[in-house]
């Protein structure tokens, strides 16, 4: 059942993205930025965690989870260290993704050429 809901919820989040592309005529960059902000705001109301416990990777794989993780890490550290924890914790949960994207992006660029 976990797999089913991961597929359905993840797919539905992408459908929302497709509607923004085709109906609102946004480009992919605007859609991604909007989704990150949306994920962050949803976490601000403690809603995104419910989605993750329900859909698993269906909620953690879409880029909305990047916004959620930014805020989540920030709030965790804010609980421990007070106000400056917001700045300290922001990349706590997100750094793995960013670091991987930089590393693999660089390595692929070194070993491959664009195919056009």
């Amino acid at each position: 059942m976990d797999f089913f809901w991961a597929f359905v919820i993840g797919g539905l989040i992408c459908v929302v993205g497709q509607l923004l592309l085709d109906v609102a005529k946004m480009d992919a960059g605007h859609v991604m930025s909007t989704f990150v902000v949306a994920g962050c705001v949803l976490d601000g109301f403690d809603l995104y965690d419910n989605l993750i416990s329900f859909a698993g990777a269906g909620a953690t794989v879409p880029i909305t989870s990047f916004g959620h993780s930014l805020l989540h890490g920030a709030m965790e550290q804010a609980d421990k260290h007070g106000f400056w924890g917001i700045a300290l914790g922001m990349f706590q949960l997100t750094s793995a993704g960013i670091a991987a994207a930089i590393l693999f992006g660089f390595l692929v660029a070194v070993f491959f050429k664009p195919k056009g």
């Binding site: 592309l21 480009d27 992919a28 664009p114 195919k115 056009g116």
Partner: peptide
């Protein structure tokens, strides 16, 4: 593509 739009391998529909 590179000058007017996006990198050639970028996944833009």
């Amino acid at each position: 593509e590179r000058q007017f739009r996006f990198p050639t391998e970028y996944g833009n529909q």
